[in-house]
Design a protein around this nucleic acid. Structure first.
Length: 329
DNA sequence: GGGCGTCAAGCGTAT
DNA sequence: ATACGCTTGACGCCC
């Protein structure tokens, strides 16, 4: 089992997701930003190894405007050696890597232009994994997309796009995650049956949207869609409901009791677990400690001391930030 | 040098 | 009709 967290390390003083405004685009700016992002990515991966966290989701903005037409900079060639060096580090330490292209990637949109841009974004993110020399167990994780008032037709469109418009290099890496409002685990499993695409399991989304499958059973249904050698072990996102917040909002920090309860449902199934929790590596470190205590992760080297994180206030003193409505002109 | 409006991209839902 | 949330963070203008 490998434990990880997405995109951002809040301990390190660098960011692997620096970007800039489209209006500020220049080749020089692009080159400098990618160089800084890759240098930081390397630092994050080293920090993770030092703390026993072997799963990481890289942010979509390593190459700003990576699939935008404004970006004609030959970043693949310019940074080939840098990507390869990071890939060598990943392989050396047995790290698992994923990307999660964001909400604009919609393979089942009725709008061909949206589908085309979505495929281009997947090609961009897949190319980074290719440049790192990682095998097909490194994944690109997306959702099934919109419903457009007719989910069966929308799912059929997804499968047809996958079959005809998604290049082979992306197909081998693409996985679909059950979401919390539209496409449940069961519907994603239907997509797997038609296309063979593995289903990335999100326990929190499954709590929000399901057909009565118990967690233990749901985990096994998803795990069965992953080919052991081609895809690797099941990737999953772990989170839980933020107390006293809108339904579907992720918790700010790991709630150990709920996590331990989830481990009961896991019941020995091997997974690589991404903690989608607001305080990032702090909760990942705690989860890893908890798992080591149960013998589910190997012990850290003698003398290892986990970092001390500032305990967060139990409830914010300031009211939640409210977006100010823009006054009409 | 702090505050805050705004940022490439889509979709469904709440109000 | 409009605003919001989603992996939100951080850019960059304004004072």
């Amino acid at each position: 089992m490998k434990i990880g967290y997405p995109c951002v390390n809040e301990t390190l003083p660098c960011s692997a997701a620096s970007t800039f405004r489209l209006a500020s685009y220049s080749p020089e700016r692009l080159e400098a930003t990618v160089a800084a992002n890759l240098a930081c990515l390397r630092q994050i991966l080293e920090w993770n190894v030092a703390h026993g966290l072997l799963f990481f989701r890289i942010g979509s903005d390593v190459v700003p405007f990576g699939s935008h037409e404004v970006n004609t900079f030959p970043w693949q060639e310019r940074f080939a050696a840098d990507f390869e060096a990071i890939g060598a580090y990943v392989r050396q330490h047995g790290l698992r890597i994923s990307f999660h292209p964001d909400q604009f990637v919609v393979l089942n949109s009725p709008d061909p232009a949206i589908v085309r841009r979505s495929v281009e974004e997947l090609v961009y993110q897949g190319a980074m994994l290719d440049l790192m020399g990682l095998d097909s167990t490194a994944k690109l994780q997306i959702h099934a997309g919109g419903a457009y008032g007719d989910k069966p037709a929308a799912l059929a469109r997804w499968a047809e796009t996958f079959r005809t418009l998604v290049p082979e290099a992306v197909k081998t890496r693409l996985v679909v995650e059950n979401d919390d409002r539209l496409y449940s685990l069961r519907e994603c499993l239907g997509l797997h049956e038609v296309t063979g695409v593995p289903i990335l399991f999100d326990n929190f989304h499954h709590e929000c949207l399901n057909h009565g499958e118990p967690m233990r059973e749901a985990l096994r249904l998803a795990a069965a869609t992953w080919h052991p050698t081609r895809d690797g072990v099941l990737m999953m996102d772990y989170s839980s409901q933020a107390p006293d917040e809108r339904k579907g909002k992720h918790t700010d920090t790991l709630i150990p009791e709920l996590f331990e309860s989830f481990l009961t449902d896991l019941d020995g199934l091997d997974v690589d677990m991404m903690l989608e929790i607001k305080d990032k590596e702090a909760s990942a470190v705690r989860a890893a400690q908890l798992l080591r205590g149960r013998g589910l992760l190997p012990p850290m080297p003698a003398g290892y001391a986990p970092p001390a994180f500032e305990p967060r206030p139990a409830s914010p003193v300031t009211p939640p930030k409210k977006r100010i409505t823009k006054p009409k002109a």
